[in-house]
Design a protein around this nucleic acid. Sequence first.
DNA 1: AATTCGGGGTC
DNA 2: GACCCAGAATT
Length: 350
Amino acid sequence: MMKQTSFSSKLLKWYARIQRDLPWRKNFTPYSVWISEIMLQQTVLSGVIHYYVKWMERFPDVSNLAKASSRQVLRMWEGLGYYSRASNILKTARIIIKEHKNKFPDNYTDLISLPGIGDYTACAILSIAFKKPCPVCDANVKRVMRRFLAWKIWNRKKENDLKSFLYSVIDKRAPGDFNQALMELGQTVCVNKNPKCSLCPLGSDCQAFKKHIQNSIPENKSSGIIRKKTLLLLLLYKNKILIVKRKKGVLSHLWNFPLMEKKNNDRVPAGLYIKKHVALKFNFKKKLPKHIHYYTKYQDEIEPVLYHISDPLPVMRDHKWVSLKHLDRYPFPSVYRKILTLLDTDTFNS
DNA sequence: AATTCGGGGTC
DNA sequence: GACCCAGAATT
């Protein structure tokens, strides 16, 4: 095993040379680190930048955020995905104001008890904002270190071993830079497929590179894609469309159109749904172009269908008729908004 | 321990 | 077109 100082000094020297100018690297406050880290969870960096800048203009600090409504927060989050993150951010902001008297927690126990903050985010905040020697262990770090140590197999025990190894090599003076350097190395050089080993500051200290096995770590996964089909009900009444508030999930205030999952190609009883929840009188207008939506391991074939409603029943709880031009006031998963924008206006008028 | 939660970058 | 990502909460 190489010396610890060599590992981190090579890494930090490289990072000082190549690190990019990102909006959240301007000044590291606990708030800015927290928001950027939550936004970056499972989300590629380039997509986050714009959201982060907009967010900081709208919610410059914790107290400002804590006063916002759930809808305002979700509207700012729309398009980023993983919407429970936005709800958890709001909950946590209010906890910091009320229970911590607007003092951002600076220890692991308090941080990890906050909604939306787990091991990774707690360590990121502690190292970057508070300069405490807590190593982070995200997908980048795992891949870089698995290659560096030539660990072909991976399990829970290995994750603990990695954590203790990182504790022994993390730079005590610049733990935030150390962590960011390791992640940036994974993102730009030690990438998942075809790593650019010729650009790596660790060079032949990397055991996988030495053994020429860097391409087989991590192991290639077999595709486990699951196909789904969904019928999306666009129900029109005069110039209004029916939207439904999501009830699943903690504090999930996002809106949808009514939708029905197709089970093994059976016909979906859309009419029954409409009769039961919306109106006794309705006219099928047309099927609209299908839209394939990929997420996680799913491929969802969304088929929007248009109905005209007459004499609507009193609306159910969580249902709402909204005029088309006011639709942008409501937070939607962006796939549904995208589908809607694909439709031309005469689709609704015909 | 396995599943759920989304969207877009990327090759 | 399929994989993957600055993970956390729930089951």
